[in-house]
Design a protein around this nucleic acid. Structure first.
Length: 859
RNA sequence: GGGUGUUUAGCUCAGUGGGAGAGCGCUUCCUUCACACGGAAGAGGUCGUGGGUUCGAAACCCGCAACACCCACCA
């Protein structure tokens, strides 16, 4: 028997561990079932899970649990991501607190520390998966740095290299001077920062000085030229001349190129080939010299004269002062411009000329574009996110994959110590002769292999054969570029298959004011706190039902409380059913034979509900599915059926037994349908009901044949409900006590006459009769087309007012119906069923109107 | 400079080519034997704005506005 209160702590306690022990989440036990597979978006081993992880994993879990019930062999692969740069940054920060740098430790020692860190956080993540109730298959758990993934990474790197799709080259890359590593373009976050625009005078022999504006004076030591637009009349005569660099007195050629925007700044632009991607291109075009003037920590190199060793900003300040002293500073303007920051360290990214490894994107991207135009494309939900993938694939530049980090997959490239010859190989060569590349790969390089490498690729494993491509991926729109795109092209290239058939995209959880949640802003919410306070089932329900797919949601604690109230409602309904059934209840198979109207009605609604919910679950529309279920639970089941059945139950006998059986089956089906959302509380209820299996985890999804659909019974039940409501309303408005006795007469044609016991119990309407009412009674006409006569006297004025209002309403309805039905366009073009429906409504309203008018006339 | 999304009840948000919805909040009433994490009744909305398509538009199309986000090398 259930406790009086739904206590989420008691309900959740120890349950998950039991499920895992029983192996309910282990896939592949029954290969006769169709496979359904997913991979978890592997969380970074950088810290605790946040609400974003809940958004990733709870929908996965709902689908996994639903699919198991629907008879699929579900495999959900869990795992964690080493998260190269993010983790290394954290580990280094922790070391720094102890006054140690990674260089003090050296590579090997540092990796030991990092592995310990990984173990620590992986343990936390496991705990939190348990708290969230994720039905992942731990027998298949993976880690991006484990042996299998490492093998896959090497294989992919070497193959791409041999195919000419990975190359090593000197390019302008984004350099994080704090973490001292290269970054890919998408790891750079641009923000509009306030800065200064410095206007300097560049002396030109025999002419007016050229005024050049820059936001980055310190890079002037690396300048190779000054450019103007050849179409710019102001500077026509300058092209071909030389000017003097105010920073170091060196002569710079003045050159013309149409790249220069005449309207921007002064129309004259300095060119720093080694520290700006555009300048790099210009320098290549005109064969200008490259000079690197910043080191890996963004301090000035020896090419910068007396400024050597200064930090870039220190240098900027000092240099501007010096130029000002020389009288070559024209002015300083405040500007807001876009500045690139490292996604991880926040440091201002320095564009630097550097030798790095790149993945050649065009051929790989083209394959994705072709796939997305084919019949076998990946289906995104909502579909608009397909455009995000496609756009990025159209624009993707070559991907810089080498990182000057230690935590990650070391690049399988080896350099001959003597000749410098490059050898790229899955197996290490003779290390006496060769030295391995120091760098590791971008963490997304391995994440990009996740769906197939976790299933065994490059080996031909039974899992890979059976479960790949995976069925569904759930992730946020913010990592379509980072992750989804990489998985897609790697998968297409190496397995010739898409990595997943469906992608369900979710939005971000924001704070109540709509701001992004972040640690620094201190507005984050720890899901574990929510779970402690409201229970994980409430959190799961909230996460999956409180917004439309793909849209951001604002964190709203009230909704979590509401979710909890809902679960509490189901809990108490179950408690009532249990109490009602009694100890000796034995569930019988359902049958429609001998059921009363209310039973037939609730089963009819249930049959239709199951279909609707199922359709929505199949389309991953959890919000829509649960709102159907919600109104069934609240209104149809708790509000109407539970209340009404109190009548037939108290009457005892055959009818009561049948009602009990229906109560039991409807509740069971509700519990099964709520299970994917709220597995803990539903399991508790399920196990307390008779006729259960060992766990809901091995149950099947509810089914109720179409033959249970019975609109007539639904209508009859509805009329009963309306009559009760009307009578109660009526009494309340007339100032009668709720239990005032009233008498009912219905017309001989009234179709639903089997309701007297219900009316008596819920409306104290003691009698249903036919024919002419007693003379002294006061009458009122109601929506359902019946009449009520009350024995007590009623103020005729109040009654009149009420009738007038009703008449008013009905007149409008009738008018609307008539207007529609006299519209030739409507009659000609609207669907037949719609027209018929309107005709029926009109007739109904006209009949009611007549009743009301008669009443008024007789007052 | 491109692109996307949002705009619906006081708040947070669903919804969808055929009569405006939920939760919370608010008003009135009720601790009656599942549940006060409850029940009953109720107030509250020109569905951002201007056009168009349609028999019919809050929904579809076009423009506009506000807000949010993404992409892009404006020195």
């Amino acid at each position: 028997m259930l406790d009086k209160r739904y206590d989420h702590l008691a309900v959740e306690e120890g349950r998950y561990e039991k499920w895992v022990e029983k192996g309910y989440f282990t896939g592949g036990k029954d290969k006769s079932k169709p496979p359904f597979s997913l991979v978890i978006p592997p969380p970074n081993v950088t810290g605790k899970l946040h609400l974003g992880h809940a958004m990733d994993t709870i929908p996965d879990d709902i689908v996994a649990r639903y699919k198991r019930m629907k008879g699929y062999d579900v495999v959900w692969v869990p795992g964690v991501d080493h998260a190269g740069i993010a983790t290394q940054a954290k580990v280094e920060a922790r070391l720094r607190e102890q006054g140690i740098s990674r260089y003090d430790l050296g590579r090997e020692k540092f990796l030991e520390v990092a592995y310990k860190w990984k173990e620590e956080y992986a343990a936390t993540i496991h705990q939190q998966w348990a708290s969230l109730g994720l039905s992942v298959d731990y027998t298949r758990e993976r880690f991006t740095l484990d042996e299998g993934l490492s093998k896959a990474v090497k294989k992919v790197f070497v193959t791409l290299y041999n195919e000419g799709l990975i190359y090593r080259g000197e390019r302008i890359i984004n350099w994080d001077p704090e973490l001292r590593t290269a970054l890919s373009n998408i790891e750079v976050v641009h923000t509009d920062d306030e800065g200064e625009f410095f206007y300097f005078r560049y002396p030109v022999e025999g002419m007016e000085p050229l005024i050049v504006a820059t936001t980055r004076p310190e890079t002037m030591f690396g300048d190779a030229a000054v450019f103007v637009n050849p179409k710019d009349p102001r500077y026509k005569d300058y092209i071909g001349k030389t000017c003097v660099n105010p920073a170091n007195g060196e002569k710079l050629p003045i050159m013309g190129d149409r790249y220069v925007d005449i309207s921007f700044g002064t129309g004259a632009m300095k060119c720093t080939p080694s520290h700006d991607p555009n300048d790099f291109n210009l320098a290549k075009k005109y064969n200008l010299p490259f000079k690197t003037i910043l080191d890996e920590t963004a301090h000035m190199t020896s090419d910068c004269g007396k400024y050597v060793g200064m930090d870039r900003y220190e240098c900027r300040k000092a240099l501007v002062e010096d130029i000002k002293a020389k009288g070559l500073l024209v002015k300083i303007e405040k500007i807001v411009h876009s500045v690139g920051h490292s996604e991880r360290s926040g440091a201002v990214v320095e564009p630097m000329l550097s030798k790095q490894w790149f993945v050649k994107m065009r051929p790989l991207a083209e394959a994705v574009l072709k796939m997305m135009e084919s019949k076998d494309k990946i289906h995104f939900h909502p579909t608009r996110f397909e455009k995000v993938l496609v756009r990025w694939m159209k624009e993707a530049d070559d991907w810089c994959v080498s990182r000057q980090l230690w935590w990650g997959h070391r690049i399988p490239a080896y350099y001959n110590k003597e000749t410098g010859e490059v050898l790229v190989s899955e197996t290490a060569p003779d290390m006496d002769k060769y030295v391995q590349d120091e760098d590791v790969l971008d963490t997304w390089f391995s994440s990009g292999l996740w769906p197939f490498a976790t299933l065994g690729w490059p080996d031909k494993t039974p899992d890979f054969d059976r479960y790949f491509p995976t069925s569904l991926l759930v992730t946020g729109y913010d990592i379509i570029f980072f992750w989804v795109s990489r998985m897609v092209f790697q998968s297409l290239h190496f397995t010739r298959k898409i990595p997943f058939k469906d992608v369900l995209i979710h939005g971000l959880v924001r704070d109540p004011k709509g701001r992004k949640m972040s640690k620094s802003a201190g507005n984050g919410v720890d899901p574990m706190d929510i779970i402690a306070k409201y229970g994980v089932d409430a959190l799961r329900y909230y996460i999956t039902t409180s917004s439309a797919p793909g849209l951001d949601m604002r964190y709203n604690e009230e909704k979590i409380a509401a979710a909890r109230s809902y679960l509490n409602k189901i809990w108490n309904a179950a408690r009532y059913v249990e109490m009602t059934l009694g100890d000796d209840f034995k569930p019988e198979p359902l049958s429609r034979r001998g059921l009363g109207v209310l039973e037939r009605s609730i089963l009819s609604k249930l049959a239709r509900l199951i279909k609707r919910v199922e359709n929505k679950m199949e389309r991953y529309e959890f919000g829509a599915a649960s709102s159907d279920l919600y109104s069934f639970v609240y209104d149809d089941f708790c509000g109407d059926f539970l209340e009404m059945t109190k009548v037939s139950l108290t009457s005892g006998g055959e009818g009561a037994a049948k009602t009990k059986n229906v109560l039991y089956h409807v509740l069971m089906d509700i519990v099964k349908m709520i299970y994917p959302y709220a597995p803990f509380v539903s399991e508790e209820i399920y196990l307390s009901l008779p006729g259960h299996l060992e766990s809901l985890n091995v149950e099947t999804y509810p089914e109720l044949p179409r033959s249970y659909v019975d609109y007539r019974s639904e209508k009859e039940a509805k009329v009963l409900k309306e009559m009760i409501r009307d009578i109660r309303n009526y009494k309340s408005k007339e100032g009668l006590e709720p239990n005032a006795k009233v008498r009912l007469y219905v017309a001989p044609s009234f179709p639903f006459k089997s309701m007297d016991s219900y009316l008596s119990r819920f409306a104290f309407a003691s009698y249903i009769g036919e024919g002419a009412p007693e003379k002294k009674a006061t009458s009122f006409a109601y929506e359902g087309g019946y009449e009520l006569y009350v024995e007590e006297d009623i103020d005729p004025e109040i009654l009149k007012g009420k009738l007038e209002a009703e008449k008013e309403r009905l007149l409008k309805e009738v008018e609307r119906g008539k207007r529609m039905l006299s519209n030739q366009g409507f009659l000609a073009k609207a669907p037949k069923e719609k027209v018929a429906l309107e005709e029926e409504k009109l007739a109904d309203n006209e009949r009611k109107l007549e009743l009301v008018e008669n009443r008024l006339a007789n007052l």
